[in-house]
Amino acid sequence: MRELFRQNRSIIHQMDARVKVIFTLAFVLFLSLTPFNAWPAYILFLTLILSAALFSRLGLGFVLKRALLALPFILAAVPLIFIGPPPHITLDVFRGVQLTYSPEGLGRFASIAVKSWISVQVAILLAATTRFPDLLTALQQLRVPKLFVAIVGLMWRYLFVIVDEVTRMARARTSRSATVPGSHHHGGSVSWRAGVTGGMAGSLFLRSLERSDRVYAAMLSRGYTGELPASDTRPLSNGDRQLLALGVVLLAMLWLLGLFSGG
């Protein structure tokens, strides 16, 4: 597992994380509010995000490929094609095999897929251009409770260490998953495999609990008293405010376009 953040020096990387967080949220909100079949608006939303990807020097391939991840979920919307709103059209597919579908349902299905795909891209852009600690600071400045931010911060600190631990455990298990010549019955029963995986999880949690004791001791030795540090509530600069306002106005315009072009 690797972190998505890409170290580049671009204007998007250097932007205040709060601006990026709010813009991301606004982007997904306006895109979601855009009605079905508003293709011109979708194209321009995509244009906006691809331009931002170019500005952040991530490369189009990186963002577009990563964004395909959300696609398997599209299965949930497939039924729309066949039982969407009337009218339904029947096609002769092959020698009497008929297929009934709803054009309106097909449009909704395609719209959901495309909106989802574009939304993932803006989320990728946020994660790839913002260091996680900066993102956390931004969330705290945006009034996310500091206890929650502290938990997530510690989680982040140890995430990759523990992922390595899991990787090694999985390798150790794979190393002992062997066959004997001539035998076709190997692998044990499914419930046995599940139980072994459970043992690995139990061992992982136990090691993590003990790790948290060591982390706590280390925090104490650096003067932690149980009080979490207060957040720095520096207001957004005027430039950032204007930039954000401009971005939101642009999104609102795309949404308006969507209102009139979709249906």
């Binding site: 002992r176 066959t179 004997v180 190997h186 692998g187 044990g188």
Partner: peptide, 12 residues
């Protein structure tokens, strides 16, 4: 159970 993992996986 730990030592038995390999042989059980081998289907013995």
């Amino acid at each position: 159970e730990d030592v038995a993992y390999g042989p059980i996986y081998q289907g013995l």
